[in-house]
Computed example of a mutant assay.
Amino acid sequence: MKPTLLVLAAGMGSRYGGLKQIDPIGPSQETIIDYSIHDAIAAGFGKIVFVIREGFEKEFKELFDSKLAGKIEVGYVNQEIEKVPEGSSYNLDREKPWGTGHAILMAKECINEPFAVINADDYYGVEAFMTMADFLKNSISEQEYAMVGYKLANTISENGSVSRGVCSTNVIEHLETVVERIHIEKLSEGIAYKEDDKWIPLAGDTTVSMNFWGFKPQLFEHLEDQFRSFLAEAGQELKSEFFIPSVVAKIIDGGNTSVKVLKSDAQWFGVTYREDKEKAAKAILELVEQGVYPAKLWN
């Protein structure tokens, strides 16, 4: 059974200042998502599912349906604030959805096979998709997940703070815990994260999650249970987020599920801020010049 790729593309790009998911960066107007999909197809993924917002669904489908027709099966699900489990309540003044864990939960009804999760605005590299596809095709246990781990120093934006899942692993490269740090910056004295108005240093070779996960369908049961609890505790807050690293950390604490860390030395790039676009476009052009990608990605 071919694995599915779930692309989290519902973010509104508040720091970027627009719909960064569909902003072109390639020499033939390709988006970062295009390169991820190209790598996924080459690695043997059989279906793409996009998590998007209803507000830009038409524009999004117009961009991707035609170029992917005949290449891979494509599906769409919407992430909206009001899509919560029956009986749950939340603050009606809230303006944004509930985070990455909620986004993945939206795909519950259309994924029944092993699947990978990526952010729409991150470039992960050809090797990462090959490694993840190999894991998903060959791991037979419903209790075994995976994560592509990157070196923190390779994932920092020069233009502002970023959020990363900071990981600790055991001697057999399985995840022991992952903590979402929502304000990490490269300072003059080194990389650090901010907590309670204090800067706490982080080593550049710290393993971090870039939300490239490998899951089995059983994950959706965990997501639904934890999301109900999350809403009961934090549903009245306007900016609370249901992060997937926090979900995974609780699953690991349960003791029945392991998460294999698939290491990558690749240089991350993405478009968290509009100023990141120039650097991302230059990185893609270099990959084209090296022959990793053709100048025109889709024929």
Score class of each variant (00 low, 15 high):
Leu5Arg: 02
Gly11Tyr: 01
Met12Ile: 12
Arg15Ala: 13
Leu19Ala: 10
Lys20Asn: 09
Gln21Cys: 11
Ile25Asp: 03
Tyr35Phe: 09
Asp39Gly: 07
Ala40Leu: 11
Phe45Leu: 14
Gly46Tyr: 12
Gly46Gln: 05
Lys47Glu: 11
Ile48Trp: 02
Val49Leu: 11
Val49Asp: 09
Arg53Leu: 14
Glu54Gln: 13
Gly55Lys: 14
Phe56Lys: 11
Phe56Cys: 14
Lys58Arg: 15
Phe60Glu: 04
Leu63His: 07
Ser66Asp: 15
Ser66Gln: 15
Gly70Cys: 13
Val74His: 01
Glu82Gln: 06
Lys83Trp: 00
Val84Gln: 00
Pro85Glu: 01
Glu86Lys: 00
Gly87Tyr: 00
Tyr90Met: 02
Trp98Asn: 02
Thr100Phe: 03
Ala103Lys: 00
Leu105Ile: 08
Glu113Met: 12
Asp121Phe: 07
Glu127Ile: 15
Met130Gln: 08
Thr131Cys: 15
Asp134Phe: 06
Leu136Ser: 03
Asn138His: 03
Ser139Phe: 05
Ser141Val: 06
Glu142Leu: 14
Glu142His: 08
Glu144Trp: 09
Glu144Cys: 09
Val148Ala: 04
Gly149Asn: 08
Leu152Ala: 05
Ala153Tyr: 09
Ala153Cys: 12
Ala153Leu: 14
Ala153Lys: 15
Glu158Gln: 14
His174Glu: 15
Glu176Ile: 11
Thr177Arg: 10
His183Ser: 06
Glu189Tyr: 15
Gly190Ile: 14
Val208Pro: 01
Val208Cys: 02
Met210Ile: 10
Asn211Lys: 06
Trp213Gly: 02
Leu219Glu: 03
Leu223Cys: 04
Gln226Ile: 02
Ser229Glu: 05
Leu231Asn: 05
Ala232Phe: 08
Gly235Lys: 02
Gly235Pro: 02
Lys239Cys: 12
Pro245Ser: 05
Val248Phe: 00
Ile251Asn: 00
Ile252His: 00
Asn256Val: 14
Ser258Ala: 11
Val259Met: 04
Val259His: 07
Asp265Gly: 15
Gly270Met: 07
Val271Ala: 12
Lys279Pro: 13
Glu289His: 15
Glu289Ala: 12
Val292Tyr: 13
Lys296Val: 11
